[in-house]
Computed example of a mutant assay.
Amino acid sequence: MLKTICYISDSSEYESIESIKKIYLKAKQNNLKRNITGVLIFHNGNFLQVLEGVEEHVDLTYDKIRFDTRHRNIIKVINNTIEQRIFEDYNFGFSIVKSSQEFNELNEYLNWLKQADNKVANKVILMVENFIGVLT
């Protein structure tokens, strides 16, 4: 069974671009091993991440994140089973969004997804759009 979790959190310290890249590369490596797709957005000390994949793998990954000391104030905002992945075709499955161009590309992808009119996908899209709206 497939599942998606979307959470937001504060960084425990203000991260440099280099430390964010290290976090991203490690997350990407671990998520590829578990066939987890999604999106990771970091801005002004805040994370928004969508994880999607096999339920056990997503839950295990989220539990590791919950106990990662680099995160504070973690709030799980979406925790649903899904019929299909939302971000499977987005930028090789897992991405960190850090520039205006990447925000625009993500917005284009989200607009494309809206056409599917999937209830869970629409909840995830709204969360990401709201987070991006804070950024622009």
Rank of each mutant, 00 (worst) to 15 (best):
86 I>V: 14
103 F>W: 00
73 N>F: 09
72 R>A: 10
2 L>G: 01
53 G>H: 05
23 I>C: 12
63 D>Q: 15
79 N>S: 13
87 F>G: 09
96 I>M: 13
60 L>A: 13
92 F>W: 02
27 A>E: 03
72 R>P: 00
28 K>V: 05
78 I>W: 10
35 N>D: 10
98 K>D: 07
56 E>R: 14
29 Q>C: 08
46 N>F: 13
132 I>S: 03
123 K>I: 03
59 D>Q: 13
80 N>C: 15
118 N>M: 01
2 L>P: 02
54 V>H: 03
24 Y>A: 04
81 T>K: 09
90 Y>D: 05
78 I>D: 07
52 E>L: 02
15 E>Y: 09
107 N>D: 06
35 N>E: 10
103 F>E: 12
3 K>H: 12
55 E>T: 14
103 F>M: 11
20 I>G: 03
57 H>R: 12
77 V>G: 06
133 G>I: 00
3 K>N: 09
88 E>D: 11
24 Y>D: 06
131 F>D: 05
68 D>K: 05
66 R>K: 15
113 L>Y: 04
11 S>N: 06
98 K>I: 08
38 G>Y: 02
10 D>R: 15
121 A>W: 14
48 L>N: 10
127 M>D: 12
121 A>D: 13
45 G>P: 03
36 I>P: 04
67 F>T: 04
97 V>Q: 01
7 Y>H: 03
31 N>L: 11
7 Y>D: 09
53 G>K: 05
96 I>H: 11
106 L>D: 01
111 N>V: 04
8 I>R: 13
61 T>Q: 08
102 E>Q: 15
79 N>H: 14
126 L>R: 13
80 N>R: 15
119 K>G: 00
42 F>V: 08
84 Q>N: 07
97 V>S: 01
125 I>V: 15
110 L>V: 09
24 Y>T: 12
10 D>C: 11
18 E>N: 12
114 K>G: 15
37 T>K: 08
124 V>Y: 04
128 V>L: 14
31 N>R: 12
11 S>E: 02
44 N>P: 01
133 G>M: 01
88 E>L: 12
61 T>D: 01
101 Q>D: 09
63 D>Y: 06
83 E>Q: 11
123 K>H: 04
41 I>C: 03
75 I>F: 08
131 F>T: 06
44 N>S: 10
113 L>G: 10
68 D>A: 13
126 L>F: 05
100 S>R: 02
114 K>T: 14
79 N>Q: 05
131 F>N: 04
65 I>L: 04
98 K>C: 03
66 R>H: 00
45 G>W: 02
39 V>R: 06
84 Q>H: 07
11 S>Y: 05
7 Y>K: 08
47 F>E: 09
73 N>T: 06
89 D>G: 04
135 L>K: 12
7 Y>C: 03
112 W>Y: 10
81 T>W: 00
84 Q>L: 06
97 V>E: 00
115 Q>W: 06
61 T>A: 09
133 G>C: 01
6 C>K: 00
34 R>Y: 12
107 N>Q: 04
4 T>R: 02
84 Q>R: 10
69 T>R: 08
4 T>C: 14
16 S>V: 07
61 T>M: 11
80 N>Q: 15
65 I>D: 02
79 N>R: 02
88 E>T: 09
125 I>M: 13
38 G>I: 01
112 W>G: 04
20 I>P: 01
14 Y>K: 09
57 H>T: 00
24 Y>W: 11
